[in-house]
Structure formats: C-alpha cells, structure tokens
C-alpha cells in the first residue's frame, strides 16, 4: 500500500495524517475523560454521553450567534464564554439526570445502560425539534482561521492546534482535580472502597452526583471543542459513542492514563490508515483490533487494583 510514494511524501503523509489523528485524539480524549470518570467511579455506563457533548456544541453555536449579533467587538473571545456555558449547561443537565434517574439504578448497571439510551433518544429528538435536523456550524473568529506552514508539504491548521492545547489544559485540570484536590481524594477513595470511604465520613452519594455532573460537563466542553473541527447535528453524538466506550474499556476502566494512551492509539491508527484504505475500512480494522485485544486482555491496557 506504500507503492508510488517517495520517502519524503510518505513522511509528509504521516505527519499530516498524524496531525489529523491528533485532532481526533483530542475529541476522543475529552469525551472519554468524562466517561472514564463516571464509569470508573460508579460503574455506570452513560449511553447519553454523546448527547451531552452535542449539547455543548449547540450551546457554543448559540453563544457564537449571540456574540455575532449583539457583541461583535468581543467576537474574537466568544469561544471562552461558550466553553464555560457548555460546561455549565451539560453539567447541570448531568446533575439533574443523576438525581432523577441514575441514582435509582446504581445496583443495576445493565438497566442504567438501557435507561440512558432512552435519555439519548429523547435528547436527540429534542435537538431535532429545537435546532432542526440539518447540521449547524459555528463561525470561527479570525485568529483561529488559516494554517501554519511547517514545510512545503505540511500544513498545520490553527484551529486544530487550539483544540489540542485546549485538550491538554482540560486534561491537566482534570488530573489536578483528581490527584491534588480534597474532592479528588474523596472520589478516589469512593472508587477504591465505597464502604470504607463512607466509614471515614465521605458522603458517597454527594460525590457520585458531583462526579456525574463533572463528567457530563467535560463532555459539554468536548462538544465546544468539536464545533471547531466539525459541524453539529442531532445524531452526531451517537457516531462517537461506541468509539468512546472502546477507548475507555481499552484503556482500562479505572485508569486515566490508560484512557489517554488508548485514545491516542485508536485515533492515530484510524487516521493513518484512513489515508491508505477507505474511511470505513480503516474504522473497521481499528475497531476489530481493539475488540481483538480486548478479547485477549479484557481488563484493558492499564489496570488499577480495586477492591470490589
């Protein structure tokens, strides 16, 4: 499959596809982080996670429209407000969902899966009714347009770099929150041993609810970042949900490092193969490899010892 390319062309192809893969990696990672925190701590599968991401994307869309018509002078900075709004909106919805639905189902993980699938269907229809079935895109501010030319053959789009920087910042923030804050300590304690954590005076239910809200909020930010690189439709979240689950499971459910590593591996292999094979075959091969490895190593790449 490398026939007909010179060595320098191949290098450029790998560099460009690698960069495209990094953008995919950013979206995967932002989505998977939220999912991994929720799944790791509560064992809950949130099938509506993709719809939380899309909520963030729509909030970004609305914010950009608002700035465009009302505050055109500040349009260059709308994105930072949009991200905050997306986080708050998705987090608030997540908080409500946990309170109404999820907390009743902690002992029935399979049923949670079905119920959150129902939530995702309802949200999809709501989006379709409110925003229409057509995909919407946001207008990027000037400073995010264009690209940076590294060599003659390698172009790096600026919005892509921005998304990556954003992902790095958020990942760092999540790590700081999980491993440096008191709240993170509580979350980790509940993850490792819920009963003991309760005995030590940690309110497990409160931690659960906040964790769920935080995970959904990160999904909202992921949606915000998603608008930088793609357009948003009511069903866009569903396209990513299976990939994201595989990222989480492949990385090892309780390990945030594993999530990063597996998001990187999956997105890079998919985007590199996409150039040489058709897009669908690249996806099939990537997913098959992941499923194959999971069959051999069900616990995923990285394992954190957890007392059940």
């Amino acid at each position: 499959m490398f026939d007909g390319y010179t060595a320098s062309q191949l290098m450029s192809i790998f560099a460009m596809q690698g960069f495209a893969g990094l953008i995919l990696f950013s979206v995967f990672l932002l989505m998977a982080l939220g999912l991994a925190i929720i799944f790791g701590q509560m064992g809950v599968i949130n099938m509506a996670h993709g719809e939380f991401m899309i909520l963030g994307a729509y909030v970004t869309f609305l914010t950009s429209n608002f700035f465009q018509s009302n505050l055109p002078h500040f349009f260059g900075g709308y994105f930072f407000f949009a991200m905050a709004f997306a986080f708050l909106a998705a987090g608030a919805l997540g908080y409500a969902l946990e309170w109404v639905l999820i907390r009743h189902l902690y002992r029935r993980p399979l049923d949670t899966l079905l119920a959150t699938w129902g939530v995702s269907m309802i949200l999809q229809q709501v989006y379709r009714s409110v925003f229409g079935a057509r995909e919407v895109g946001v207008v990027l501010p000037d400073w995010l347009m264009g690209s940076y030319q590294v060599t003659d053959m390698i172009d790096v789009p600026i919005n892509g770099m921005f998304v990556m920087a954003l992902t790095a910042t958020i990942t760092a923030a999540v790590f700081a929150l999980m491993f440096r804050s008191t709240w993170g300590l509580q979350v980790r304690a509940v993850t490792q041993n819920r009963v003991m954590a309760g005995a030590a005076g940690i309110n497990g239910k409160r931690v659960d609810r906040l964790t769920f809200a935080l995970g959904c909020g990160i999904a909202g930010v992921a949606g915000s970042a998603f608008t930088m690189v793609g357009s948003t439709g009511p069903t866009a979240g569903q396209l990513y949900i299976v990939d994201t689950f595989l990222v989480v499971v492949f990385g090892g459910a309780q390990s945030l490092f594993g999530t990063i590593a597996s998001a990187f591996a999956i997105s890079q292999s998919q985007s590199t193969m996409e150039f040489f094979l058709s897009g669908s075959m690249a996806k099939v091969l990537t997913l098959l490899t992941v499923v194959g490895i999971l069959l051999l190593r069900p616990q995923g790449l990285f394992v954190v010892k957890v007392r059940k």
């Binding site: 639905l101 949670t112 079905l114 699938w117 129902g118 269907m121």
Partner: peptide, 11 residues
C-alpha cells in the same frame, strides 16, 4: 416515545 419506553421499562 421510544426513549420514554426505555426509561419506563427500567424504572
């Protein structure tokens, strides 16, 4: 309706 069915059948 389908979404409500999913939730209802579980809850």
């Amino acid at each position: 309706a389908m979404g409500a069915l999913f939730i209802g059948v579980v809850m």
